[in-house]
Design a protein around this nucleic acid. Sequence first.
RNA 1: GGGCCCUUCGUCUAUCGGUUAGGACGUCAGAUUUUCAAUCUGGAAAGACGGGUUCGAUUCCCGUAGGGCCCA
Length: 473
Amino acid sequence: MTSPVITRFPPSPTGYLHIGGARTALFNWLYARSKGGKMLLRIEDTDRKRSTEDAIEKIFAGLEWLGLSWDGEPVFQSLNAQRHREVAHGLLDAGLAYRCYTSQEELAQMRAKARAQGRAVRYDGRWRDRDPLEAPAGIAPVIRLKSRLKGETVIEDRVQGRVVFANSELDDLVLLRGDGAPTYMLSVVVDDHDMGVTHVIRGDDHLTNAARQCQIYEALGWDRPEFAHIPLIHGPDGAKLSKRHGALGVEAYRDMGYLPEAMRNYLARLGWSHGDREFFTVEQMVAAFDFKAVGRSPARFDITKLTHINGHYIREMDDAELVERFIAFLPHMNASAMTTGRGKDSVRRQLLQAMPGLKLRADTLAALVESARFLFAERPLSLDKKADRLLDETARTLLGELIATLEAVSSWNVETLEVTIRHFAEKHGLKLGSIAQPLRAALTGSTVSPGIFDVMAVLGCEETMGRLRDRTG
RNA sequence: GGGCCCUUCGUCUAUCGGUUAGGACGUCAGAUUUUCAAUCUGGAAAGACGGGUUCGAUUCCCGUAGGGCCCA
């Protein structure tokens, strides 16, 4: 019988949930779900000065937006400091750790010396076996792990494969600082152990840390978890993802009109693949996810592809569902006023009717909203430059004649309107485009819109005629 | 500086030693067309470099170069 899989996502609440963190969370979530296990959330708030409530809220919101639910209550690392200290002192009592009184100056010298000799920069263990009685007064010691000097530390990583570190490269790491604060290295190991984490899935920037953490596990006599170090996401220039690129919070993408399912799909395919498959439902993703198919090289964030995937999801989405997303999105672009003065039901009805034509032309919710503005615009419409130029004397005259024809239309629907207008164009010896474009300009204020007959149908007879008269009167 | 990781079209990737090196985004051309999209068809586009191992390397090994991460 194998124990249930427990993964964890441990964000520091010093900012928003960025793209890289979101993908790490996704992979943890996918693996846990695929194994019928759990994903825990740990808030690594030991840096009290930089941790904020606001950041915690944003991280929760980001995970929820992406549909990455965690199991149980979040663990706050700062609350475990006492436990971490006890573990460190246990190691001290067992002779597996020691007090080190080396000053900052000495450390700096050590570094300079190592560097000059072309060796790894690390602590030389000068207090490792020294008599504590020689301790200088007035210096609060740090507690260091008495790590193995010889041999190797081997990590059988689920993504990186077998990675070997010579123990001689790893120095006696600090467990507790002079002020008694546990180090990151100690806290992570103790918390992961206490939380029962079986699989540590994180960015490969932690690969070297993993070796050091293994030494702590060993000293403590604890089983280490499985490790899976996934490659980082880089910016378009191949360098670390920064604010210049995509290191925005996921909520920034939400506000740009990206769908969580699209973001999830895109992120999953960054560094992971499943044959030639590009699109995955959550279920398919969970079923197909496997560390063996996770690559080891970093991937660049490409918003163009994200946008394409987003457009795909918008087009595939059920119209009624899209209407709800549309409405929910309005506040995010400060466009709530767009539909004021209209009944909620009528707004929904009109959007639903227009959606098939609108969603084909938008690859973000923001673009979708923009493209729908003409529906709710107040008469007389303001025309953009091109539309204005299109509506010259000839065009207006033509529209005037069209009004008369349209007044005779008995049933106002796409089919009838199309037949009527095609006939009208023929009668005047015009191509359909010659009448459709002025019509579009008059009805939408733009030269770009869904099919013109759809526009007329969605606008309705009364509004259509009104907008036409605005241009011919 | 040391250690570790990485390297297939511009980008994300497939390839379990033998393929015309495949797909996707982007790009170009065409079809369609009432605009713009969407859609369809087609094109250009890749194994960093140098050595090995092998009948045969993108694939395995070594080195070089480049990039990244950690340590400070």
